[in-house]
């Protein structure tokens, strides 16, 4: 039942990522809604389901772009693997700690994604870091914070990894 429910949730997230989220873009910087849903699943159902959903959602999302297929899934898997280690009950009580955790997790995702996507564009690591990795991570974090404030249970555990 959960598989069906979350498949539907991911389908909706992917459709929104491709249709409505670009409306919020600031100089081509967009929040990654699909990754936010993946992280919410890690919080809810643990690392294993986070890895599975992160991989599948990443591959599907990559099919809609012109970059390498497999990059988003790789970024998702590495970030989820990290997240699974560090999630703990303190995040439910300390909002800033939760934000810091989400930011580092998003940073890991983007530090995997952007260097691979930028291959061939001759952009250096630091310009890439400051112009793409950090802005995308910050913007995704802002969206996560908004979602958390709107739906506090989104990043609360039902079962920790």
């Amino acid at each position: 039942m959960y598989v069906l429910l979350y498949s539907l949730l991911f389908a909706v997230a992917i459709i929104l990522q491709l249709t409505l989220i670009p409306l919020f873009s600031i100089k081509n910087i967009t929040p990654d809604l699909v990754f936010i849903v993946v992280l919410a699943i890690v919080f809810k159902h643990g690392r294993f389901w986070g890895l599975i959903s992160g991989f599948v959602a990443g591959v599907v999302l990559d099919f809609f772009g012109t970059g390498f297929v497999g990059v988003s899934s790789l970024g998702n898997i590495l970030a989820v693997f990290f997240a699974g280690y560090w999630i703990n009950e303190q995040f439910e009580r300390r909002f800033l700690l939760l934000l810091l955790f989400l930011f580092i997790t998003t940073l890991i995702h983007n530090l995997t994604y952007f260097p691979i996507v930028s291959i061939g564009s001759s952009i250096g690591f630091w310009p890439l870091f400051f112009r793409s990795v950090i802005p995308h991570s910050m913007y995704t974090l802002v969206f996560m914070a908004v979602i958390y404030l709107a739906i506090p249970s989104a990043f609360n555990k039902s079962r920790l990894a």
């Binding site: 297929v69 899934s73 790789l74 693997f81 699974g84 990894a161």
Partner: peptide
């Protein structure tokens, strides 16, 4: 060990996909 196995399988398949982007089957699935 299912988390570790899933992690390594996921990384492996992702890397294989990245290096197979011009494959016609990938294009068909796309």
């Amino acid at each position: 060990r299912r988390d570790f196995i899933t992690f390594f399988c996921g990384v492996l398949v992702s890397v294989v996909l990245i290096f197979s982007n011009n494959n016609s089957q990938i294009q068909n699935v796309r």
